[in-house]
Design a protein around this nucleic acid. Structure first.
Length: 381
DNA sequence: AACTTCACCAACCGCCCTAAA
DNA sequence: GTTTAGGGCGGTTGGTGAAGT
């Protein structure tokens, strides 16, 4: 592989494009479209390789290019997107109409990196230089870091009561929205949270979404969606009647590992940390804990492979409003009220005998970014 | 005025992915 | 299943003009 065959051909011009060459390329593509790029130079009468023509068109001649200096708003967007996407210039450019990846890359390397450094921010991590930037402790980096205008709370500080989840509409910071919109795995929360014993419970169902427009695609048991929960329809946990009735039965399926129809996410405080237990259930009187994901399964399926960066939403039925439906898909308008991303960068062994192991999740509300610890797997008694 | 350094950015290079043969 | 070519992407280079000495 490596260089394209066209690049080996002799007598092809390289370097800057002349106005005459630009005119030839522009005229040709305007009239005929580019089609196969490798044939463009010959048809357009250019002594260039197709790749060079393509680049010239995309980065300079395309009529929809904005050109000119970047606005402050554009620069801020690039910084935010870079914090989220890293050096994925094409993805960043996709968020900025009229700008090319090359243009943005050049701006970043020549200007934005310096600006961030001048502000005492590491352009690679987007964290203050004074903070611990050790890549082995990524969760720590997030603490006390500003997300948009939101305040960030310390992991072990002032952990909120999940019963007080704000249900107002909320506008997420740009990078959060982008992450949500590009997600493929989302958890649909069901009816409501039900208080039980020392914790609170939120039933949910995972479905598989398409990219960007939140198209709901019917998943199947062979898909790689990993975590498949069916809300309980009886007992102490709430039913999800409304949500269930909106969905074709083919979109629901059992946990592929447990084949048990009842799972929930539960919350309680352990070791001073607010924990969410995931994939567990309690009996109707709340007296005993039964977890349907046995320890062997947990080891086999490598949780981290499935859930890393998995977004989820907490809310009620109003969080997702179905707008259209067809045989194969339903489109939901998302009014997320609270949601987050599970981080599996580290696993914490709790000193408690009943919670193990823990992963962390960033949970965003309309006010704060807060850190929870999630407990996955078998409850140890 | 001459030279050097710096900043910018257009263009190239090489790798990767994918579809077609 | 393998090979090949096209297209896309991110990293890097090198030309050019501005600024500094």
């Amino acid at each position: 592989m490596g260089r394209h065959s066209c690049c080996y051909k002799q007598k092809l011009r390289k370097g800057l494009w002349s106005p005459e060459e630009d005119e030839k390329l522009l005229n040709y593509i305007t009239k005929h479209g580019h089609g196969c790029w490798s044939s463009v130079p010959k048809l357009a009468g250019l002594q260039r390789c197709g790749k060079s023509c393509r680049l010239r068109w995309i980065n300079y001649l395309r009529p929809d290019l904005k050109r000119g200096a970047f606005s402050e708003q554009e620069e801020n967007s690039i910084i935010e997107l870079h914090a989220l996407l890293g050096n994925r210039w094409s993805q960043i450019a996709a968020q900025l109409p009229g700008r090319t990846d090359n243009e943005i890359k050049n701006l970043w390397n020549s200007s934005l990196k310096k600006k961030l450094k001048q502000k005492g921010i590491d352009p690679n991590t987007h964290q203050p230089f004074s903070e611990n930037n050790d890549n082995d402790t990524p969760n720590i980096q997030i603490q006390k870091t500003s997300v948009g205008s939101n305040e960030v709370k310390n992991l072990f500080d002032d952990t909120p009561n999940p019963n007080s989840i704000p249900m107002d509409n909320c506008n997420y910071p740009l990078e959060i929205n982008s992450k949500i919109n590009n997600s493929v795995n989302c958890f649909i929360p069901c009816d409501n949270m039900v208080g039980l014993g020392g914790g609170s419970y939120l039933n949910f169902q995972q479905l598989n979404y398409g990219i960007n427009n939140m198209t709901l695609s019917p998943p199947n048991s062979n898909s790689n969606t990993s975590l498949c929960f069916i809300p309980s329809t009886s007992g102490s946990t709430s039913t999800c009647s409304q949500m269930m009735s909106e969905l074709n039965s083919s979109t629901m399926f059992h946990s592929m590992y447990t084949n048990h129809p009842s799972n929930s996410i539960s919350s309680g405080e352990v070791d001073g940390i607010q924990n969410w237990e995931f994939g567990a259930s309690k009996s109707s009187n709340g007296s005993s804990i039964n977890n349907y994901l046995d320890h062997q399964v947990v080891e086999d399926i490598k949780w981290s492979d499935y859930i890393n960066s998995t977004p989820f939403f907490l809310g009620n039925n109003n969080t997702f409003q179905q707008t259209t439906t067809s045989t194969h898909s339903s489109i939901y308008e998302v009014k997320q009220e609270m949601g987050g991303f599970i981080n599996t960068n580290e696993s914490i062994q709790s000193s408690s005998s009943t919670w193990h192991p823990h992963f962390e999740a960033d949970i965003y509300s309309n006010k704060d970014l807060q850190r929870f610890s999630l407990a996955f797997g078998q409850t140890l008694n």
